[in-house]
Amino acid sequence: MTTKTAPGTVLPRRPAPKALVGRRAWDVRPLYEPAIFAVVLSIGYFVLPSSWQYTLTIGVIYSLLATSLGILFGWTGTYTFGHAAFFGMGAYATALLRTESWNALLFLGLSAVVAAIAAVVIGLLGGRLVKVEFAMLTMIVGQIAYLLTFKIGPLGGDNGLVGITRGSVFGFDVTSNNSFWIYTIVVIAVVMGILRRINLSSFGASLNAIRDDPVKAASIGLPVKGLRLAAFTLSGAVAGLAGALFAQQGGIVTPDTLSFTFSGQIIIMALLGGMYRFWGPAIGALIFQLLSTAVFGNSSNGTLYLGVILLVVVLVFPKGVLGLLERLSNRFPVLGRLRRGRKA
């Protein structure tokens, strides 16, 4: 039991400890964390053999996608089994506009808007549903979107859409692999920085409150449904943006981008890294991508090995890689310092 002071006693104000809730004038994590992310991966990109370049580029795009899922699973406690739908919608939106020769960023923006609109509609439809019921709705909507890609002629059916160009950004050509990497990593670092800012804001804290106890959240006056819808929309928009980057990267989109299987993979990526830390899903996506292509890609049993590794991860450290780091840091203080910067 904590020592109780007499009611109404005003304690002398102590100097505020450094890490006290938001006492600092400005939280710089949204600035330096994405910068470290971008620099470390870029060093990897340019130092490693060129066979890694594809893996890394897809890996960072998946990082963004998995982070968008983290907004729902990790920040808000809302579950979705159809997240690939937003990624796919973003990819298809960019693909359908492939004949336009706009600034590459414009495609990203439009794809984000398309996916955000879809998310608002689904979020409103499912406004009364929670937990598994809502997850089922997202799964069904995701399957419908997947099937529609086969039924709607202009979407190219099984073959998908090809011939998407990478174009240019403010006159800088981003068609080469190296320039496309720089474009991608800068865009992703900026978006991750914005998301980190949101994660640490009052809005982000309110989402966490809804995750921890929706009944209590409503009783202190938080608009639970409205905040869930806002989180769902934000998440959809970011997934759509990631989808647009994916379309630009490969030049092709296929119905696979919206498939239920892929939705499941996004969840695995986020789980692998740890849902409850801001950087967990992003790191999980990178590990997933490295394991599935670079390490096991050439083996005929690759998927099986990957499956076993994931099973072990989920059973042994359910809070993901960052959760494991946290456990280790209790034993090794050096790691602890590393981790504290990552806490979502």
Binding site: L20, V21, R23, D27, L200, F203, A205, S206, I220
Partner: peptide, 26 residues
């Protein structure tokens, strides 16, 4: 403990809409 009270405070002040502000403060 403090964060819990801060969240109650920010809910009361309708600051949950704020995406950009510094982290919730005491």
């Amino acid at each position: 403990v403090e964060e819990n009270v801060v969240i109650a405070r920010l809910a009361h002040q309708s600051r949950y809409r704020n995406l950009v502000s510094k982290s919730p403060r005491s």
